[in-house]
Amino acid sequence: MRREADSLTLFAQNGAAPGRGRRLLSSLRRLYAVPSAAFGATIVIVFLALAIIGPLIAPYEANQQEFQDARQAPSKAHWFGTDHLGRDVFSRVLLGASEVLWLSGAGTLLAVLCGTGIGLTSGYLGGWVDELVMRLFDSLLALPALLLALLMLGAIGTSVTSVLFVILVVYTPIVARVVRSAVLSIKTRGFVEVARLQGESLGWILFREILPLVLPTLAVETALRFSYSIFLVASLGFLGVGVQPPSPNWGLMVKEARQSVSLTPWALYYPVAAISLLVISVNLMADGLKRVLQSPVE
């Protein structure tokens, strides 16, 4: 927070009123001052770009099988080689990026929205509703994340929608608890009390007085949840209970490629490399965000 204060003072000295956009920009600039975070953020942006233009530039269809080309080592025609069914690994990894980013991105967003809403209201209002919600969330959290996900998928069946739903249910309680604990410390602060004394509405207090102070924490939490969502989507794919074949899910690709690893090791290595790179990058970015947004200046 202090860091932020410093940069804001800088703006004032330049004679400009700090707007929301500037604040965001300065956060980004400070994020890029941390080398590991800059690396992470850049890779994440590259992945996002690839996810968007992937379908346009992929040389082959995800499930286009060319049996005569099966099990080919990487070459000019197939950069990452082909798998046991003759599918182009490069195209599948590329299309897998948009699949995993879309799924985990949307899931994270949903969970963050729900969690923030619940955490804000429950934390601010307190009382028995809060108690009840938190007990329920505690119980959900007593189930390890993957176990809960597996149970739910076992019950509602495996599909893209159910994976989204699973991410929502698994991560909403976590986000809500993080937001709630931030709200608990903010709501006792003087300005919230003054707002109540001035007869401000519940909406104003929640969204204008409290929410802005939760945002830094929330940004870090969102980045973390995003990373875990990627993790979860890939793991479920690998276990064969998430997205079903023939989808180009990275976890699923790894699962399939393991059968013939001695013949087509590239079909295993490239998706593994893609997952590792993406997850590490998101983590580096999240860590950078945490350092920029939450730690005081040293």
């Binding site: 793991s235 690998f238 790894v254 997952i275």
Partner: peptide, 8 residues
């Protein structure tokens, strides 16, 4: 290492 899926 922290976020790498176990299967990786």
């Amino acid at each position: 290492v922290v976020g790498l899926p176990e299967f990786v």
